[in-house]
Design a protein around this nucleic acid. Structure first.
Lengths: 100, 100
DNA sequence: ATTACATATCGATATTTATAGATTTGATAA
DNA sequence: TTATCAAATCTATAAATATCGATATGTAAT
């Protein structure tokens, strides 16, 4: 886990928002027609719609966040779903509190 | 308190290190000849020496961190001492845990 | 095979950040 | 009041980030 990389990921309001939205998908996104529930997270299009940013920007941001291990991507059919990586987040909080 | 601004401050290894060093000045810095103890923190020169970065860079970083309310500056004589702003740090941890 | 669609990648540009050297400012001491 | 020293600010450049439109890729349906 790279704390600096995580901090950089969270140093942008759009990405910070995405992480918060993914904490409560039911109340932040519509249901997906292909899957039931949000077990694998939320598809890129919904995140794009909610953020108001372009598809390429969101794809790039999600890739950054995956690289920082903040989210986990799962491809199902044509869609890629993103959910939070709670293990990293827990480790991040712990490390932050211990280190700084 | 601006979480994004704080995250940006902590998205750089040198600044992250500074905040950690200031947590334990006794073990990270020499005693200052003008003041006893580290009640007001550590002077810029010592932080510069330890970081290996230039004086202007460190001054700039400390200014950023002060702007994010991560540190508090106190000028005494020719020296400016920087210490952690524990109130912000506590509020930051709390907000982080609640929000993300 | 061809089409359609969701997402990823590429290429480009504007903005921000990282960093340093030079200069200025503020404070003390001679 | 001048010299000195610590720190802040200014100026400059290289690198990274933000963001988009265009194009490519992978998957599924026809």
């Amino acid at each position: 886990m790279d704390i600096i990389k995580i901090n950089a990921s969270l140093a942008n309001a759009a990405r910070y928002d995405i992480l918060r939205w993914l904490k409560d998908p039911e109340n932040n996104f519509p249901p997906h027609k292909e899957v039931s529930g949000f077990g694998d997270g939320v598809c890129v299009s919904f995140i794009k719609d909610k953020s108001g940013l372009s598809q390429s920007t969101i794809s790039h941001y999600l890739n950054m966040m995956e690289n920082a291990q903040l989210v986990i991507a799962t491809r199902i059919g044509k869609w890629t779903y993103y959910k939070r990586n709670e293990a990293t987040l827990a480790a991040y909080f712990k490390a932050l509190q211990e280190e700084i």
